[in-house]
């Protein structure tokens, strides 16, 4: 028993001294998986020059980021959509300040098998009908005879807000045609890659060989590919700002960190992650 008490004392002592010795400031960030790679890479680089600062980054989605900031559990929220009026009203004590750090497109994506079978572009209306459950088979839009697996996202995810606002007209519209509801961009990408007849929505940066980005056929018949160029010139219809949010104007290290992401060095990270930087 004595050994036990002694070791408890030692541990307590270690914790207390540890807390006092390291005056490390900790900045907590949480929110959209879309913004996460930028912030977490930026944090790595920022820590090289600011060794007394510790930045922790958590996923969860835009809604989670706003809630946690609203409850003042974190210092920086990462969001990939705008804050809704409801959310502002929910937290009257919190003064949300947004800081744009880049631009991104939400791209309707499909499994590579369908893409290779000839479906490379759809109209917004066709995509809407798929999510409403009115189109259930790929042959109805000119593809192979396969049922469509419509992959939706959790309600508060930023990617879904932006996508549904354009496609179904309301950012919180229900999608009765959805067959799966998933969370992060990674999880959605995995499900679409595992399927051979899926459609989903992803940030531009998550498109790869198994998960192809669809072009969008505009009302005038023009086909717009999800390229960086079309995102920069605003032709691609579903674009959004990547934002950081703070409670009031940021101070001290938090301000330095946000300024770092906005600086040319930080914006390079934004570009490397596959997004459009503020300067383009």
């Amino acid at each position: 028993m004595k050994i036990y008490y002694v070791s408890v004392l030692i541990l307590l002592f270690a914790i207390i001294t540890g807390c006092n010795a390291s005056k490390k400031e900790a900045i907590l960030c949480a929110g959209a998986t879309t913004v996460l790679p930028v912030v977490s890479n930026a944090a790595e680089q920022f820590k090289l020059t600011h060794q007394d600062v510790n930045i922790m980054v958590n996923a969860g989605g835009s809604g989670v980021g706003i809630n946690l900031l609203g409850e003042q559990n974190i210092q920086i929220g990462m969001i990939s959509r705008n804050i809704t009026q409801k959310e502002i009203e929910k937290y009257p004590d919190v003064h949300f300040v947004t800081h744009p750090i880049g631009k991104d497109a939400v791209v309707p994506v499909i499994s590579s098998e369908i893409y290779d079978a000839g479906i490379m572009a759809l109209t917004i209306e066709q995509i809407a009908k798929i999510y409403k459950g009115e189109i259930k088979n790929w042959k109805e839009v000119g593809g192979p005879d396969k049922e469509i697996l419509a992959v939706d996202k959790e309600m508060s995810r930023g990617t879904r807000h932006v996508f549904m606002k354009i496609v179904l007209g309301n950012e919180e519209a229900a999608a009765p045609g959805a067959d799966l509801v998933l969370g992060s961009n990674n999880e959605e990408q995995t499900a679409i890659a595992q399927s051979d007849a899926a459609i989903g929505m992803l940030s531009n940066a998550w498109i790869n060989g198994d998960v192809k980005g669809l072009s969008i056929i505009l009302a005038n018949g023009e086909v717009v590919e999800p390229t960086l160029e079309n995102i920069i010139n605003g032709k691609f219809p579903i674009t959004r700002n990547l934002l950081l949010i703070t409670n009031g104007e940021p101070q001290g290290e938090i301000k330095e960190f946000i300024d770092f992401i906005k600086s040319p060095g930080g914006q390079k990270i934004v570009e490397q992650a596959g997004y459009v930087s503020l300067y383009q």
């Binding site: 969860g60 989605g61 809604g63 989670v64 809630n67 409850e71 959310e87 959790e154 067959d179």
Partner: peptide, 17 residues
């Protein structure tokens, strides 16, 4: 696909304010 109480809680509790 479906949903259980636990999977719902695991996915959505942090999203609700």
């Amino acid at each position: 696909p479906g949903q259980t109480i636990t999977s719902k809680l695991g996915r959505e509790i942090a999203e609700s304010a």
